[in-house]
Amino acid sequence: MTALRPGGRPSPSMPVGIGVRGRPVLRTAFGVLLVFWILVPLVPLVLWSVAGLWQVPAVLPGTYSLDAFAVLAVPGTLAAALSSLLLGGTVAVIATPLGLMGALAAQALPGRCGRAVDLILLLPLAVPPFALVMGANITLLRLHVPAFAGVVLLLVVVALPYTTFMFRSALATYEQRFEDVALTLGADPRQVLRHVRAPLLSAATVRAFFLAFLVGWGDYITTLLVGGGQLTTLPMLLGSAAASTGNEQLVAVLSLAVIIPPVLILAAVALPATIRTRARKPARTPAGTWVRALTRKAGL
């Protein structure tokens, strides 16, 4: 019995069923499991948000109500959402270009120096946020740094490894000769930046921006400790609601309010690319799909 190895040569020991048909089935199964892994925890949350009365040991709510969603229209909630948006956006706006510069520096430096820069830029991932905040909090207070600025400053440090990693991966496969070609075609360095480098790195830029935004949007610890209660964001509202009992519906709705906006942004960014990819000949790489989908407006 023979089957195909990844290299295409028949393997005498591998049954046909596993070699040719079994692997896709396994892959699909693992994919479905992964989706369940992510979605299943959200199910109780969704149920709680619409539950009128849900008592133990009932598997499902006894009654359903949308009353808890009224909290979303409360001015305080809207203000908190705006604060979260502002915080996430500010962190992303600062951390994204810093990540690009860090990645460029790490790439430009030879051997050990480049790896040292990589290590430094990834270091915040190794430090627990709580420890980072406690260490920096006193210093920020002594320097009279405003709460919002202090929170942004620390969250940018937390976001930097993500943005750097995104750009590092993109630059690793970036073909510098695209810029050489553009130059010889008469593009000046500014045009090269706008019409070649920016579109080619836009997929990584969007991903980096999104991750940095999430760091600011969903932060609780840093906002609580450095903000000192002066900065009220959605996670802060959620935290205070969750601190007391009997607010399960409210907590669920606020949780969804924190979760859904980023998911919508992700869908808005990714779905058109997926639809376009299916509509025409498939792009060669996922990265290529991102590039084409996300940068069409940035091109010529």
């Binding site: 695209f178 010889t184 075609l185 008469g186 593009a187 000046d188 019409h195 579109p199 290529g288 010529l300």
Partner: peptide, 30 residues
Amino acid sequence: ERRGMALVFQKALLFPHLNVIDNVAFAARM
């Protein structure tokens, strides 16, 4: 960019974010 030369590499290096005609029109657009 002002030398008035054009270079073609072994790899075509067509800009992936542009279609065929916009690749060819690149120099004129610049």
